[in-house]
Write a protein that binds this DNA or RNA. Structure first.
Length: 556
RNA sequence: GCGCCCGUAGCUCAGCUGGACAGAGCGACAGACUUCUAAUCUGUGGGUCGCAGGUUCGAAUCCUGCCGGGCGCGCCA
């Protein structure tokens, strides 16, 4: 907790610590106390400097506290400072500090906590990246919800983010998909279907085939049973286009925006794959062996070298990724971030090798690994198998629990943790669902302000702070004051789940405040202060929910 | 075998750039609506932080070794 509202206090503690021990302490941590009787804010700084000064922590803490008490300028901030435990400095803050914080937050409006990143970077973020051979499932949904939230966070703290989705529309899987669509088309026109053995069986394949037939009619009669090469190419492309369109539409429904869908096939068609291999060859990073062309990825930490061109002349998936990452490197600005599934973690060093080969520091590529998500219903794991067709699609998930719950639940846990999403809980339209808990807090703020409006109570931004504050008011203001730090931290760590945790805490503080304190109809100072507090809380809840891509309803 | 991730309350998980008796939600139990929405609040119960060492004034957090689980280690994509 390093709220900007306590910078003065932080600096004063640092100065006092140096004065007391001679030790220079650049970073003075301020932490929320674990127990209410410890005051509003605490600092363990004395323990740290005492160690380096070779003195007992409590003694050092006493010296610092005494020095702080002698500073008149702090009287506006600190009500009381005490030394406790092994050497903690516990502060109780003045009502005036709370008043100022609330005014500043309400005045900052949507800019509160924004733009704090240093330095501000231009970042190319790649996420989701599906195969256009089938519908997106829960795994894609987690990538989408997480990636989009990270993008919003990075943008909010001041970075410039370009969102990109790589489309794997090339290779054997696309051929199989094309053949599968052609087979369903053959059925529709009364021909014998030639469904490949490891082809695609889902009902959506037939849907796609029907859509294509509506467009091209019977033009392929006699050419799909079995299909000729040209027909296969047509059905692969036409089918892939339609799957991609579905993907785009579903992501839009989920409020996930992409700046570009990047086609792998175009990399091949435009010669970038070959050019990429040539570039690596020119850099001396390839060699020929057994008729294949190898990339010396082991020079960059990979377990072994990898094939770029097979002995039959075909390029590998890696070759396309080389081309793609070279292309991204030339466009990224300062940094590129890939969000990959856990099953691709072995890819990190290969991609770093590409970046290094292109002459960049490997640090400019950040790979975030997403662990698995599974579903649980009635206390039992929902079995999901692609082959059995029991995979839960993103489409079904949204129809089941809604976009807000889907997004909220999928970013509630760290991307680094495999977790189980409880469908019963997510479906719950009532009290035990954390999504509504946070949204309800926002609606409640709106409700209070609507009531004030109705009562003809206007806002008074330059009110004086009340002399006495309820503990719930103190807790709420302290929470709000921590927002800039919380959001900066979530962005820096690429950890939107921290934002979720913050919002749940904030919602809890608001609800507690609501039950203990009335806003409308109190004395002028109290009413004015609580109005501004309500405005500030509503604002931060709205900002937070927006960063998660979750709605902030005014009424529920 | 090697690499990455994970083992924290009955369940799902935070906390992990070291700080006060370890947190939340759900579930269980007991209370609170004549007042700005009870989709809320208050309280109770619940834990050898996988195990064992080490570093430290202080370890869930850092180091080492085990045990257990997930994922990966193709001239597949």
């Amino acid at each position: 907790m390093t709220t900007p509202f306590l910078d003065d206090l932080s600096r004063a503690i640092a100065a006092a610590a140096t004065q007391a021990t001679g030790v220079v302490e650049p970073a003075v941590p301020l932490v929320p106390p674990t127990r209410p009787e410890h005051g509003d804010i605490a600092s363990p700084v004395a323990m740290g400097v005492a160690k380096r000064a070779g003195r007992p922590p409590r003694e050092v803490a006493d010296d610092i506290a005494e020095a702080l008490r002698r500073r008149d300028d702090l009287a506006l901030i600190i009500d009381r400072v005490e030394v406790a435990g092994p050497g903690f400095l516990n502060f109780r803050l003045r009502p005036g500090w709370f008043g100022r914080v609330v005014r500043d937050i309400a005045a900052a409006d949507r800019e509160f906590g924004a733009g704090s990143a240093k330095p501000r970077e231009a970042i190319l973020l790649e996420f989701v990246s599906p195969n256009p051979t089938g519908p997106m499932h829960v795994g894609h949904a987690r990538h989408a919800a997480y990636g989009d939230a990270v993008a919003r966070l990075l943008d909010f703290v001041g970075h410039t983010v370009w969102r990109e989705c790589y489309v794997n529309d090339y290779g054997r899987q696309m051929e199989l998909f094309g053949a599968s669509v052609a087979a369903r088309y053959a059925e529709l026109i009364g021909d014998v279907p030639h469904l490949p053995e490891d082809g695609y069986h889902g009902a959506y394949v037939a849907e796609i085939a029907a859509e294509i037939r509506t467009e091209v009619g019977d033009r392929f009669v006699g050419r799909v049973s079995p299909p000729d090469a040209k027909a296969l190419g047509f059905f692969a492309t036409a089918g892939g286009d339609r799957m991609l369109a579905r993907t785009q539409s579903e992501l839009e429904t989920c409020r996930v925006r992409m700046d570009r869908y990047f086609s792998e096939a175009t990399l091949h068609a435009e010669g970038h794959v070959v050019a990429g291999i040539d570039a690596l060859r020119a850099a001396g990073l390839t060699y020929e062996d057994d008729g294949a062309t190898w990339f010396r990825t082991s020079d960059f930490g990979d377990e072994k070298d990898r094939v770029l061109v097979r002995s039959d002349g075909a390029t590998t998936y890696l070759a396309a990724d080389v081309a793609y990452h070279l292309d991204k490197a030339s466009r990224m600005g300062d940094r590129m971030i890939d969000i990959l599934g856990a099953d691709h973690h072995g890819y990190i060093n290969r991609l770093k090798a590409v970046i290094a080969a292109a002459g960049y520091s490997t640090d400019v590529l950040e790979v975030l690994i997403m662990q698995l998500v599974s579903l649980i219903e009635q206390g039992e794991a929902k079995r999901m198998s692609k082959r059995a067709g029991t995979l839960v699609t993103l489409h079904e998930l949204i129809n089941d629990i809604g976009v807000d719950a889907t997004r909220f639940f999928l970013v509630e846990r760290s991307h680094d943790t495999a977790f189980e999403l409880d469908l019963n809980l997510a479906r719950e339209q009532s009290q035990e669902n954390p999504v509504y808990y946070v949204q309800y807090a926002h609606a409640r703020c709106c409700s209070i302000l609507a009531k004030a409006d109705q009562a003809g109570v206007g806002r008074a931004p330059d009110h004086a702070a009340p002399d006495e504050l309820d503990p719930s008011e103190r807790a709420l203001v302290l929470r709000l004051s921590d927002w800039p730090d919380a959001v900066a931290d979530a962005a820096a760590r690429r950890a939107p789940h921290r934002l979720v945790a913050y919002l749940k805490d904030l919602a809890r503080d608001l609800h507690a405040f609501y039950h203990r304190c009335r806003v409308v109809g109190e004395s002028a100072d109290v009413q004015a202060f609580r109005m501004e507090l309500t405005v500030a809380t509503r604002q931060v809840l709205a900002l937070g929910l927006e960063l998660l891509g979750v709605g902030a309803p005014e009424r529920m």
